[in-house]
Design a protein around this nucleic acid. Sequence first.
RNA 1: GGCGGGGUAGCUCAGUGGUAGAGCAGAGGAAUCAUAAUCCUUUGGUCGGGGGUUCAAAUCCCUCCCUCGCUACCA
Length: 523
Amino acid sequence: MTKPHFYITTAISYVNGPPHIGHAYEAIGADVMARFKRLDGFDVYFLTGTDEHGQKVQKTAIAKGKQPQEFCDEIAALFINMCESMNVKFDQFIRTTQDSHKASCQAIWGKMQEAGDIYLNKYAGWYSERDEAFYGEDELEERDGKKYTTTNTEVHWMEEESYFFKLSAYTDKLLAYYEEHPDFIQPAFRKNEVVSFVKQGLKDLSISRTSFDWGVKVPNSKDHIMYVWVDALTNYISALGYPEDKGGNFRKYWPADVHLIGKDIMRFHAIYWPAFLMSAGLELPKRVFGHGFLLTKGEKMSKSLGNVISPQDLIDRFGVDQTRYGLMREATFGQDGDISYELLGNRINAELANNLGNLAQRTLSQIAKNCDGKVPNPGILEDADHHLLDKAGQAMLIAVRGEFERLQFSKAIEEIVQVANAANLYIDEMAPWTLKKTDTERMATVLYVLAEVIRNLGLIMQPFTPVAANKILDQVAVSPDARDFSFIGAAHALEAGTPLPKPEGVFPRYVHEEAEQAQEKTA
RNA sequence: GGCGGGGUAGCUCAGUGGUAGAGCAGAGGAAUCAUAAUCCUUUGGUCGGGGGUUCAAAUCCCUCCCUCGCUACCA
């Protein structure tokens, strides 16, 4: 039986600076999704990488006395390290300076040209070198006979020969596509924005430059290089081997199931990219999902405000699993979310340490002490037992899967937390510590049911907290080859008598700095 | 300016005509297996302002205020 395929991508990160929390957030989101799908029986391909061309990169490199490629190598390494430190397991890290990528860009360019969608003309306008962008007259202000952008960078009038893409020809085709594929753009409110933008009518797009040379050469042209979009967006297929497809990955994984991107680049993925693909006669991705940004105390993070929370800060403070969980939990994916050390710390303590971690610890330590350190032998199950087991089995998987289909990670976690809640309620009602004195058989049954719930929780938590979830599974002696989601539920329940290792906490409480300081004072 | 979201408990949000809800935070209690964790109870809101329709409005209509997003070539 062949597995269904699932291809997920993040945006490729521009190498004009080291990774920040936003990059980590997106990478973790994609990784959580990829892990879920792998565990749920899919053949997953997860792509991320870096966008390395452009005038800004070239200039920054030169300013630092480096060759552009050398500079890109350094920054790309930082992004790869960030993924590793966040336990983000991609299948490929693509870089747009790879030869294979360049060849792919030239191939899709050729296709678009064959379709008659590329023509040569002149692009003229007010250009800011620092921003690498043209500005409209209305976006500028004049001082001392010079023109400046609102961000206070000087602009010059520039005329440049440029290849154009006939985006205007795709207005109706795109609108029809959105209509026929209502889930193509998500969240839904982003779709509305895109549709209303396209409805205004689209202008042709300048897709080449001659003013610098750090980019992919336009086929059969001496001095044109491709400009951003054709180059950057093509990574999603160049990574799969388009056009030769020697490894068969393109055939296998394209079209992508999800392009996971930031809300700020929605337009490029929901308009330009589909138009390019239509022009080249290629299939369109199934879904483009724009996530929100992370704010802190309601404000954008910025160096000048001094409120930057870096990926490394979070790992140092909370740990990798906790950081992944906290980010996926605290914000609704698709909307902006507020994070702070306090919010994340509270969330981690309330849900991971107190609710889930302590549930495992209190159950397993009772088993260790009172059941000879083996999976207890259950007697006849009562209604309450069945009820809890059902809730923690297929029902939980189905509910969580439903949330994953919509990339609602926070809601998925809510479903899981509810099960842990129910288990805490159950353990208090059953009070196995009392049964120990009155009815050891019933105690064994209760502890068995709880161990089984913990097994299911360990399984379902793997996408979010891979290391800790697997430690939990180790503690209930689940074989490494019995950890995908097909093992959730009663059919693969724990076997009585299986020896268990000594229990150990997996989600330590986070002690807030304030509390730490207070402790030092009293000490 | 145009178009589109929001404004409900301290915080995050659910709730589209019929006695105001959840989680977290706060308060009190129970229990003592456990990571001072858990469980129970509980304080707390003229549902942005005003007007209207209705037996009845957070929910429908009008108006005003506030806030956020989109409004093309940095990514």
